[in-house]
Amino acid sequence: MAETFPAAGMEMTHILVVGDIDASRSFYRDVLGAEVVREYGGTSVVLRFAESWLLLVTGGAPTDDKPDVTMAPPADANTVAHAMTIRVPDCRAAYETLSARGARFLTPPRDRGMEVRCFFRDPDGHLFEISEAVGQS
């Protein structure tokens, strides 16, 4: 019997619950450079970014296939349960580019020895890291 999970051709999509779909679409498209692939009824935006899929959705009540789950943007941007790291070839250059496009970083890039990294948030407070591996071949 062939293996069914994981299987060839599988891809992962990160779902981010947002409060304002228009502000989030603009941020991911205009600041990060993500490609808008499709939109659904003003409540969902599918994006392609860095060989990954992002699905931005507005919050909502439980449904019959997730009866105990309420979808909501982060309640507190300073408490993180999920974050994404974007590995970049030059953290300082990426920081400058993203800052010029409107990203608001928590700090400038910090040299941590084996990596240079810094963090920013999207309009709803989802945390992103840009990270450059240094001193590794």
Rank of each mutant, 00 (worst) to 15 (best):
M1K: 10
E3N: 03
T4D: 08
P6M: 13
P6A: 05
A7R: 06
A8Y: 10
A8M: 12
G9F: 05
E11D: 09
M12K: 03
H14L: 14
V18K: 01
G19L: 03
G19T: 03
D22T: 15
D30N: 01
L32T: 09
L32S: 08
A34V: 04
E35D: 12
E39P: 02
E39G: 11
G41C: 04
G42C: 07
T43L: 08
A50R: 09
A50K: 15
W53A: 04
W53I: 09
G60C: 04
T63Q: 05
D64E: 09
D65T: 09
K66P: 02
M71C: 10
A72R: 13
P74E: 05
P74L: 14
N78L: 07
T79P: 02
T79Y: 08
T79I: 12
V80G: 12
R87K: 05
R87G: 07
D90S: 11
C91E: 03
Y95D: 08
E96Y: 07
T97P: 07
L98R: 03
G102D: 05
A103C: 13
A103V: 04
F105D: 05
T107P: 08
T107I: 06
P108L: 07
D111A: 13
G113P: 01
M114Y: 14
E115M: 15
E115C: 10
E115V: 08
R117D: 02
F120G: 07
D124Y: 00
L127K: 08
F128Q: 07
E129C: 15
E129F: 12
S131D: 04
E132I: 09
V134E: 01
G135Y: 03
S137C: 06
S137N: 10
